[in-house]
């Protein structure tokens, strides 16, 4: 069924008489809700997508804390209970899984040409990891500097 159509079929493309029509009476199927349990790849995909939920919840909590801090020191309630720490650890794991799985795909997605040559996917992936590490260090330094500056 490999299709390499000729110039004549190009002229016919899109005309209604040459459009394949659906078969009347065919049995329509629906995708079961448990499709993501069918194999390991599907399950990992579902897990990767679901990691966005704890990350979003953690960020919402952070926004709430910032809002509390804005109301003054008395109202500020920093999250340091064991439950909150456990929640943060889960969120950190989710964020790592999400980030690493996406960065691993970056070499496939980003096709970067330098002159006539395409940069190797491995180099693109490593460059993304380097950027990630760099930004993390900058943010960490900034946070440490801000905490010292305040005190």
């Amino acid at each position: 069924m490999a299709v390499e159509a000729s110039a004549s079929s190009q002229r016919h493309a899109g005309t209604s008489e040459h459009r394949p029509r659906p078969f009347i009476g065919a049995f329509q199927r629906t995708l079961p809700r448990t499709w993501w349990l069918r194999n390991r790849n599907y399950s990992f995909f579902a897990l990767r997508e679901l990691t966005a939920i704890p990350v979003a919840l953690w960020l919402l909590w952070l926004l709430f804390e910032i809002w509390l801090a804005g109301r003054g020191e008395a109202a500020y309630l920093p999250g340091n209970s064991p439950l909150y720490i456990a929640f943060s650890v889960v969120c950190f794991g989710a964020a790592l899984l999400h980030s690493i799985s996406w960065l691993n795909l970056s070499g496939v997605i980003l096709r970067i040409k330098v002159g006539q040559n395409v940069v190797a996917p491995r180099v693109v992936t490593l460059a993304n990891y380097a950027q990630w590490a760099g930004v993390t260090v900058v943010i960490a330094v900034l946070l440490v500097w801000l905490s010292t500056w305040r005190s």
Partner: peptide
């Protein structure tokens, strides 16, 4: 139909 739409030639 979708294959036709992308004019694979």
């Amino acid at each position: 139909r979708k294959l036709q739409d992308v004019q694979p030639w």
